[in-house]
Simulated assay, not measured.
Amino acid sequence: MSTETTPIAPVTPAPSGIRFDGVSVAYGENTVLDRLDLTVEPGEVMALLGPSGSGKTTALRAVAGFVRPASGRVYIGGRDVTQLPPHQRGIGMVVQQYALFPHLKVKDNVAFGLKAHRTPRDEIAGRVTEALELVGMAAYATRYPRELSGGQQQRVAIARALAIRPGVLLLDEPLSALDARLRSGMLAELARLHRELPDVSILYVTHDQVEALTLADRIAVMDRARLQDCGTPEELYRRPRTEFTASFVGNANLLPVTVTGPGRVDLAGAAFDVPTLTATPGATATLCVRPHLVGLGPGPNALTGTVTEVQWRGSTHRVHADIDGHPLMADLRELREPPALGAPVTLHFAPEDAVLLPAGAAREREVAGG
């Protein structure tokens, strides 16, 4: 008897890349996505990061075809799909609650999309095996979802999305139902999948900054139905352009300052050196410094205040201080004796570690469209 198996048909890459062209979505008088212009390049992982109600899931659903824009166009692989139903868009989608069919075995769950797309019957078994091997679940093909852990069910959901060989993969808070240990493992698995599927564009919706920083090639920061910022994780972390970005992509100290001259600002009567800036003397701004870049003791740009809280975090102590009425956080390593609550404290930061941002009031006017 021949042991040869039926070869899997050659893969024809599905259209990849996503473009939002002025996309708005509204429910009655409530605009939930406002004039979104954004491009996800072929093979790119784009994270949509923002709080609840920011518009990120609505943007993903517009790509999937589950909501129709009130205005604007959605393109996949250069093709206008704004009016196409979901099954004609060539996308795979994974949601936070897995949505596996409990009465079907793993292999049949993965085959479901293939059958819906009318894949030739003699290709389905090979495609199912291929997808399950990609997520490390081939050994569980004959189990039911109830016999799997949460992390295993999520892998099956991803395999089902990948089995149709989509050009675009949509992930809507895919790890939110997992505990911290499983989430960390799945982040590593998703990063591996991205390396093994270099032609697939991934749009990843999350409110978790760690997930976005870990996985994304670029992050689009959403707030109040609008795109606030977009850039690589390093760009947004090291050089954010708004207070909202600074506070949502990593932790940040945001201190109100007044510009006194080139490379100089004033905070509560004390002068500080900052990167060269062109703002007019007397203008207000916000000084952004990441907590891990704040040091203990005297140094450049020293601030004096009072300790209000100390949190031990394993490798660091997070020291909270009050600096003349302004809160400041410092993540300090290897402190044998952290400062006591209520004790005076001196903290400092290097000029090159600071970023000057428009004052918060200016950002509020931008968000409001003024």
Rank of each mutant, 00 (worst) to 15 (best):
residue 314 G to I: 02
residue 314 G to V: 03
residue 316 T to N: 09
residue 316 T to H: 12
residue 317 H to T: 00
residue 317 H to Y: 03
residue 318 R to H: 05
residue 318 R to N: 10
residue 318 R to G: 01
residue 318 R to K: 08
residue 318 R to A: 02
residue 319 V to E: 05
residue 319 V to F: 04
residue 319 V to H: 05
residue 320 H to E: 10
residue 320 H to G: 12
residue 320 H to F: 13
residue 320 H to L: 14
residue 321 A to R: 10
residue 321 A to E: 04
residue 322 D to A: 09
residue 322 D to I: 02
residue 323 I to P: 07
residue 323 I to Y: 02
residue 323 I to S: 05
residue 324 D to C: 06
residue 324 D to S: 15
residue 324 D to M: 06
residue 324 D to I: 01
residue 325 G to H: 06
residue 325 G to E: 06
residue 326 H to F: 09
residue 326 H to K: 12
residue 326 H to E: 15
residue 326 H to M: 10
residue 326 H to R: 15
residue 327 P to R: 06
residue 327 P to K: 09
residue 327 P to A: 05
residue 328 L to Y: 01
residue 328 L to P: 05
residue 328 L to F: 01
residue 328 L to K: 06
residue 328 L to V: 14
residue 329 M to K: 14
residue 330 A to F: 00
residue 330 A to R: 05
residue 331 D to P: 00
residue 332 L to M: 04
residue 332 L to K: 05
residue 333 R to W: 10
residue 333 R to K: 14
residue 333 R to H: 12
residue 333 R to L: 12
residue 333 R to Q: 14
residue 334 E to L: 11
residue 334 E to D: 15
residue 337 E to I: 08
residue 337 E to H: 12
residue 337 E to Y: 02
residue 338 P to H: 01
residue 338 P to W: 06
residue 339 P to E: 05
residue 339 P to R: 10
residue 340 A to Q: 14
residue 341 L to H: 14
residue 341 L to A: 15
residue 341 L to K: 10
residue 341 L to T: 13
residue 341 L to M: 10
residue 342 G to C: 11
residue 342 G to L: 08
residue 343 A to H: 09
residue 343 A to P: 03
residue 343 A to M: 05
residue 343 A to T: 07
residue 344 P to K: 14
residue 344 P to I: 11
residue 344 P to W: 06
residue 345 V to L: 12
residue 346 T to Y: 00
residue 346 T to P: 07
residue 346 T to R: 13
residue 347 L to A: 09
residue 347 L to S: 08
residue 347 L to P: 13
residue 348 H to E: 01
residue 348 H to K: 04
residue 348 H to T: 03
residue 348 H to N: 12
residue 348 H to P: 04
residue 348 H to A: 03
residue 349 F to P: 01
residue 350 A to N: 09
residue 350 A to D: 15
residue 350 A to F: 01
residue 350 A to Q: 15
residue 351 P to T: 02
residue 351 P to E: 04
residue 351 P to S: 01
residue 351 P to H: 00
residue 351 P to W: 00
residue 352 E to F: 00
residue 352 E to H: 12
residue 352 E to C: 02
residue 352 E to A: 15
residue 352 E to L: 08
